[in-house]
Design a protein around this nucleic acid. Structure first.
Lengths: 228, 228
DNA sequence: ACCAGTATACTTGTCTGACGATTTGGGCGA
DNA sequence: TCGCCCAAATCGTCAGACAAGTATACTGGT
């Protein structure tokens, strides 16, 4: 698949490249939730040694992108409603702090506005994958602009699970993406005006909407599944 | 919640036991900051294979308890003032969210009051190590009572670095521990009264005090170091 | 005589292969 | 039909060899 060396100054380390590749496949939904991911399978698919695959699975497990108990096969998790709520509670905690800090100095991250532009483009092209990508980039830019290494690290883990869940529902996506774009704009506007309270309020609203869409999708899927 | 097993006989896994042991040695300051921690050293000290030691060091690096760049030896970090501020900013973000949730339902965690009792006992006995331990347990109980797996996971990482820093300064500790006990009591009181705003305010005050003590200690150490 | 550049050796990290321990699933017997 | 036993598969651990980077010592030049 990865044809030429092309540029592929892909992470100098082999384990790093492997990790990134598997991570991408998981969050993009290429590997279905509940699917068994054995060390041997990874080792064969990528032609690497098993310990290398093992290290990769351990890292992904630590980030919550895989579930595994001792002596059992790792599986990609399917987040239920309770876990989605937990995830978004944690996400809200981190991002509220971030936008408050940014609004206090009226700092609008350049990377966030770039992500917004990319999202609008993806919305008109109906490119779902790019949409999700841009959405992640937007929120990531918000937190990164705070300049706190630890906050960014926490957020990265959270966003990993968010990305995973969005990727799993990506195929059946129905809601119009422009709503999301407008909600993002509202947040940036509040930050630019130096209004921390409004920025936090807008962010909470946006995340509540997103969470609602996910939970709704999940319920729809479950009822549909019960009919089979 | 932390129900019965409570025997916690050494983790069945060898890697787990090794990890816990090394972690304890680091956060307790038994391994000085700046000290080189090679894989071979760990392997020899515990009579385990190199890959096992490697996995251990990788886990600790991921948690921020070790710093390592490619092809260089892992060292236990010495947090400078900027990093301590970053650490406490992240800590405040997480714990503020926690106490707000608890205060909203006026839920005072039983584990927290137990930790308070332990802290008072340690204070009268002048047992520094137990003091730090109880302090960590108190804040950990606060977050755990929220019931959010992800918030607890983030907090665990943060507290690891906090523990590390406190352990490094533990020897030269001068401030009276009763101040800390009273600050903790204020927080619990506000939670019990169901007053989220005051609980957050008390928490922020407490963390500012703690951060100030650490930064002060750090500066004193540096000037003292410059005289040699 | 001192400084800079280079080459060598040591340390460290990474990758590969194999063995033992444990859990899960299926088949046989009661 | 239920329980026990066996077998297959998977995970955890150990041992070894290769490649990369860093530090040190040496030599040449100033």
């Amino acid at each position: 698949m990865d044809g030429q060396p092309s540029f592929s100054l892909g992470p100098s380390s082999l384990t790093e490249a492997l990790y990134e590749s598997v991570r991408k496949r998981i969050v993009n939904g290429e590997i279905a939730p509940g699917e068994k991911l054995t060390e041997i399978r990874i080792a064969n698919e990528y032609s690497v040694a098993r310990p290398t695959a093992k290290a990769c699975l351990e890292r992904l497990t630590a980030l919550g992108l895989l579930r595994r108990t001792t002596h059992k096969t790792a599986v990609v998790p399917k987040l239920d409603e309770g876990e989605i709520r937990d995830l978004y509670f944690s996400r809200e905690t981190v991002e509220r702090a971030a936008v408050a800090v940014l609004a206090r100095t009226a700092t609008v991250p350049a990377a966030a506005v770039r992500a917004q532009a990319a999202m609008k483009a993806a919305a008109t092209d109906m490119a779902f994958a790019n949409q999700v990508e841009a959405d992640i980039a937007f929120h990531s830019a918000l937190v990164a602009a705070v300049g706190s290494r630890r906050l960014s690290r926490m957020h990265e883990v959270i966003l990993g699970e968010v990305h995973l869940t969005m990727g799993q529902f990506q195929a059946h996506r129905t809601t119009h993406p422009m709503n999301v774009v407008h909600e993002h704009d509202d947040i940036l506007k509040a930050i630019g005006d130096g209004d921390p309270e409004r920025a936090q309020q807008r962010l909470t609203h946006h995340l509540d909407q997103a969470q609602g869409r996910l939970v709704g999708q999940l319920r729809r899927e479950q009822t549909e599944e019960a009919h089979t």
